[in-house]
């Protein structure tokens, strides 16, 4: 399952996308995130999944644009800490940050 956490508004698409089929539930992303955006717990979207998965904390979902901005998702010189920490490659960001703030 690809879970899109975040929002789309007049200024762009601001989503953290977690592929729960890849996520191992290891929790390294949550430790790496400087803004404390991520968490690991029960799969809220598949009640029959017994394995823990990463998700974006509920209170962050409406302000993800601002919370994620310091890490320069999609346009920084290095990938964001969460992406670096995620061995199975389950995390990605939508283009909002790159299109709004990125340089070529």
């Amino acid at each position: 399952m690809k879970a899109f956490f975040g929002f789309k508004d007049g200024s762009g698409d601001w989503f953290v996308i977690i592929d729960t089929d890849r996520c191992s539930g290891c929790g390294k992303c949550a430790e790496a995130c400087p803004s404390n955006v991520l968490q690991v717990g029960e799969d809220e979207y598949d009640p029959f999944n017994e394995e823990p998965v990463a998700s974006v904390r509920e209170e962050e979902r409406k302000k993800i644009r601002y919370s994620c901005a310091p890490c320069q998702p999609g346009y920084g010189e290095t990938p964001t800490p969460c992406i670096t920490a995620c061995e199975p490659g389950a995390i990605s960001h939508s283009e909002g940050w790159k299109l709004m703030y990125g340089r070529q």
Binding site: G12, E95, L99, M100, Y101, G102, R103, Q104
Partner: peptide, 14 residues
């Protein structure tokens, strides 16, 4: 420079 160009690209992208 920089961001203005990006802004146009953003519009195109949308």
């Amino acid at each position: 420079e920089a961001k203005v160009v990006e802004k146009e690209k953003y519009e195109e992208g949308k």
